[in-house]
Simulated assay, not measured.
Amino acid sequence: MTAYTDHKKKKSLLQWARSRKGQQIIIIVTFMFIPLLLLLTFTYIPFGEMAKFSLYKMSYTSTPEYLGLDNYKEVFKNKEIFSSLKLSLYYMAGSIIQLVLALYLATILSFKTKGGNIFKGFMFFPYLISGIAIGFIFRFFFTRGFVFDTVLQWCGFDLENLPYWLRTQGLNNVSLVATSIWRYFGQNMVLFIGAIMSVDSELYEAAELDGANKFKQFIHIILPSIKTIFTLNVIMSITGSLSAFEPPYVIANNGANGTATYFIKMNNIAFTNKKIGLASAMAIVLFLIIFAVTILQKLFFKYAFRNANAEDQIVSKKKKRLAMSKKKEAV
């Protein structure tokens, strides 16, 4: 009797696995298991190991020595490490300029513009170039007497009166931020264009019936409609500015002349000074800062776009009115 029952269960299980529903569940579980396994293996386990390293004084060859939270205290006590975070303000300011420029051009290019497709291609092309290649390009671009200085001399400037773009304190960080803006604003522009082009054209017609000009259409139609992409771009730009690495590393020769960002300092401490524990603590601190900034940005935009749903309802009513007026004209 027991053998018969076990055979029946096995048969029913096999039948379930061969059924449509069973195969769907097996495929879903399989496709979930593999990405989760990769994520666990290459992200969460290494992150846990790094968090453990941050509690020790260790290098690549020496025996680890437990320090507790001393490495975290060192991150905030060390003036060079903590001051490197201030350089992120340059990149944050640059990200704001980048987003404003991208949104402005995206709004123009979303409508019929002569040569718009060619212009989009030119603006997006820098994002496709390797960051290291861009670094070498702008390293020669800003070098004394080279491309940028030559162009300024054509405009009437004297070479002796021009500053050293990569040596002058403060100005060198502005030069590096300009390269980041040039590289990334095309990506943001394309994302904005895709979002703006998905807005129903009848909404603009409804707004024009009420006498709304282009600026009011932008504020009350375009911005609320692209709020998801806008929020995503802002979060990516601001958090990316906290982890700037390629421009100061390649262009400014590993963060020379006061251009070393937090990421550069962390890289030097880990691989030059071989203080793995301290570098791991810096990485954890940076993760917490980025996490906090992301949460604050989400809360801010949730508050900023609190009236977006109400505006969507108003616009839908205007759309209905437009449809009614078209029906009357047809009659």
Rank of each mutant, 00 (worst) to 15 (best):
I108L: 14
E74F: 03
Y90G: 01
E202P: 06
N117H: 07
N213F: 00
L40S: 14
A281W: 00
C155I: 15
L209T: 13
E311F: 02
M1G: 06
Y204V: 05
F138K: 02
M197A: 09
L223G: 01
I284C: 11
E65A: 09
T143W: 08
A17D: 08
N257L: 03
A206T: 12
Q98E: 10
D70A: 07
S243M: 10
V177E: 04
K326N: 15
V100W: 07
K216P: 08
F301W: 04
K77M: 15
K275R: 15
I269S: 01
M266G: 06
I118P: 04
G145A: 04
I290W: 04
Y72L: 03
K227A: 03
R139W: 07
Y56G: 02
K73R: 14
V100A: 08
F245A: 01
E311D: 11
L103F: 10
Q313A: 14
M324R: 13
L296A: 15
K265R: 11
F119V: 08
I34E: 08
F141V: 02
L69I: 14
T30L: 12
F218P: 01
I97W: 05
Q297K: 06
R144E: 14
F53R: 13
V190P: 02
L14V: 13
K214A: 02
I269F: 06
F287I: 05
I229M: 09
K275T: 06
S325M: 15
T5S: 09
L171N: 09
T63M: 03
N233M: 04
L67Y: 00
K298C: 12
F136I: 08
S62N: 12
L40D: 07
I28K: 04
K317Q: 12
F111V: 01
Y127S: 02
T43N: 13
I222W: 00
V331C: 13
G135F: 00
G68C: 04
T168Q: 06
L13R: 12
L286V: 11
T43I: 14
N172P: 03
L171T: 11
F125M: 11
E80V: 11
E65G: 04
K227G: 02
A323Q: 15
S225N: 05
K319N: 11
M1Y: 05
S225M: 00
M266R: 01
L69P: 01
G186I: 03
S88G: 09
G156S: 08
V174W: 09
L89F: 15
D6I: 13
